[in-house]
Design a binder for these strands. Structure first.
Length: 578
RNA sequence: GCUCCGGUGGUACAGUGGAUAGCACGGCCCCCUCCUAAGGGGCAGGUCGCAGGUUCGAUUCCUGCCCGGAGCGCCA
């Protein structure tokens, strides 16, 4: 149990006893202002109202009850009844010190007591094109969530649902067929974006080419060996592009996580047949549809989920249904998470509804579309560069690393060239990732080079800098950073604030596992780093003596450990110096 | 028309049924004889889109409206 839960349980019991009711909620929350203590209980006023009692009197009774609890003597300095009936809890410095000191020998938080099988579907780029800035959010946020569930000890299955199947591939194959046989495909495909654009141009300009392209789609789906061979070569090269980017960005996705759309090909026909057997299918304008009464179209009529086109082809709804069936029935997922753009929320609502109706997803399996907002330009329109293109992910990373390189040369010229490059690479990538992770994923957000690649304030470099400063203390003093420095009761305000924040790591991670909003972890780490910076200014570590010095070194260690762990969950590497 | 997401200081964003609404950038002013100034401190800047309602208490929940974005039958 974390600190908040412990306090909430204790105060709720006290509230039960003081009121004579049962199941009371103390509503303990971290206090927002130090003058109101460390935590506050807000449940007294609502209960007093319900029972028709005076909230101040009830509050006083709760405080009296709580003080009889042996726990109270151990962890609270005092309880203060304030305002209309708030109970402010001031924690004991000795308690904070002892709790922190105990962390030296433990994980920062225990693994989940009830591990689940969780499938997470993220990144999932379209292999026909090159990954651009729009793909960043799902990939980075998904990776942070995946890392968090791993850390919590869940059975996590990553799936990269590559878009490797569909009409564009007919066009690309037709274009590949036109290339001179002598040409090297790797070179031709070194820039997927221009290759795609060139193919699209041919497609739009030449009807004969377009016909060829459409014919290729049919041939591909029928398993024509020549088409398949070209398709495989294209896919392999495109996957290499993605993997290079994942490696550069430090994304934990690899070849073993690839379960592309084409994987479900052979499951589509049986799926549609099954829906038919279940009587869920109706024909509409030649297409096979599942009608859902809860969704209406523009004219107020029931909205269909089309699972088979009038020409017999299958659609992405069909593939997604097959994927749910596979994940629930074969992988035995208890929770399936989809990191996909918010624009597809209706699609997922429909697909989830059909999956429930058809029994592909049992009621106890949670299906969650973790949607995220669109990247906008400064004009408030979906993001494009002046030329109408979007920015390639490789170029974004390159620019960020370059800016970081210039900065590190200026800030730390005594560092060797290789180290400077290393620092620039880490800082550059970290800044890009943090810029995306630190925002609530639900809202659209505005892309801006200078905001995204800022290295001051609430940014990744700030967190990395805090970490590097700590490491530098140990390095400078020639101290073993892994030795055991006992933490005693924090004496100064800055030490106490830092100590309390360190103890709240597990609260943060638990909320993150619930809501899948990594920006909560970003905020926590930013505040932690901020508390450390203030501690650093106010409390000399190496100049202190005896137990005080040990304790401050211990606080430094735990701060470093928590920062490193938290950043690792976000997929951000730390640096020893910068 | 219907559905979903958003509207918070000049800008970009947090946040929550609780006590004076935070942070960063930008502006102005301080702080390196002291563990990295990618830092710390301070000042200025807000009727939390508008109007009702629920509540002891609403920026947060509900309803209506306004504004921005997105989606709504055979693309993914």
């Amino acid at each position: 149990m974390n600190l908040k839960q412990t306090l909430d349980a204790a105060l709720s019991t006290a509230l039960d006893r003081a009121s004579g009711e049962s199941g009371c909620q103390a509503l303990v929350a971290p206090a927002k202002n130090p003058q109101f203590g460390d935590y506050q209980a807000n449940g007294v006023m609502a209960l007093a109202k319900r029972l028709g009692r005076n909230p101040r009197e009830l509050g006083a009774a709760v405080v009296a009850q709580f003080e009889r609890d042996p726990l109270a003597a151990r962890l609270a300095d005092k309880l203060e009844l304030a305002g209309p009936g708030f109970i402010n809890i001031f924690l004991k410095a000795e308690f904070l010190g002892a709790e922190l000191d105990a962390l030296h020998e433990q994980r920062l938080m225990p693994p989940s007591a009830a591990p689940q099988t969780i499938v997470i579907d993220y990144s999932s780029p379209n292999l026909a094109k090159e990954m651009h800035v729009g793909h960043l959010r799902g990939t980075i946020i998904g990776d942070a969530i995946a890392r968090t569930f791993d850390y919590l000890g869940h059975h996590l299955i990553r799936q990269n649902h590559f878009g490797d199947w569909g009409t564009q591939f007919g066009m690309l194959i037709a274009y590949m067929e036109e290339l001179p046989r002598s040409g090297d495909l790797h070179t031709e495909l070194s820039d997927l974006e221009s290759f795609y654009r060139a193919a699209k141009q041919r497609f739009d300009a030449d009807p004969a080419f377009a016909t060829l392209a459409r014919a290729n789609v049919v041939k591909l789906q029928a398993g024509d060996p020549e088409c398949l061979a070209l398709w495989r070569r294209f896919i392999a090269i495109s996957i290499e592009h993605c993997q290079a980017l994942y490696d550069k960005l430090g994304i934990t996705l690899g070849p073993e996580h690839i379960v592309p759309e084409s994987f479900y090909n052979e499951r589509l026909e049986p799926l549609v047949a099954d829906l038919k057997t279940q009587g869920l299918l109706s024909e509409s304008d030649g297409a096979e549809c599942v009608f859902l009464d809860e969704f209406k179209n523009k004219n107020g009529e029931p909205l269909p989920v089309i699972v088979q086109k009038s020409d017999g082809g299958y659609l992405y709804a069909t593939t997604d249904l097959a994927a749910i069936r596979y994940r629930c029935q074969e992988l035995h997922a208890e929770r399936v998470l989809y990191l996909v753009d918010a624009r597809q929320s209706l699609h997922f609502q429909q697909v989830f509804a059909v999956a429930r109706k058809a029994g592909y997803a049992p009621p106890e399996c949670q299906l969650e579309h973790l949607s995220y907002g669109t990247m906008m330009g400064k004009d408030g329109k979906p993001f494009k560069t002046r030329s109408g293109d979007t920015i390639k992910l490789v170029d974004l990373c390159g620019e960020s690393i370059e800016r970081a390189h210039a900065l590190v040369r200026e800030k730390n010229p005594q560092l060797g060239d290789a180290e400077q490059r290393q620092v620039a690479a880490t800082v550059g990538i970290a800044a890009v990732k943090y810029a995306d992770l630190s925002k609530n994923r639900n809202s659209d957000y505005i892309f801006d080079w200078d905001t995204m690649l800022s290295f001051e304030g609430n940014t990744a470099p700030y967190l990395l800098y805090a970490y590097a400063r700590i490491r530098s203390i140990f390095r400078r003093a020639g101290l073993d950073p892994d030795a055991r420095y006992p933490i005693s009761a924090p004496a100064q305000a800055e030490e106490k604030t830092l100590a309390l924040k360190l103890l709240q790591f597990s609260e943060t991670i638990e909320t993150l596992a619930q809501d899948c909003l990594p920006n909560q972890l970003c905020l926590y780490l930013y505040e932690l780093a901020g508390h450390f910076m203030k501690f650093y200014e106010a409390c000399p570590v190496l100049k202190a003596e005896g137990k005080e010095r040990d304790s401050r070194l211990g606080l430094c260690q735990l701060s470093a450990r928590t920062l490193r762990q938290g950043l690792a969950l976000l997929g951000i590497d730390t640096l020893e110096q910068m």
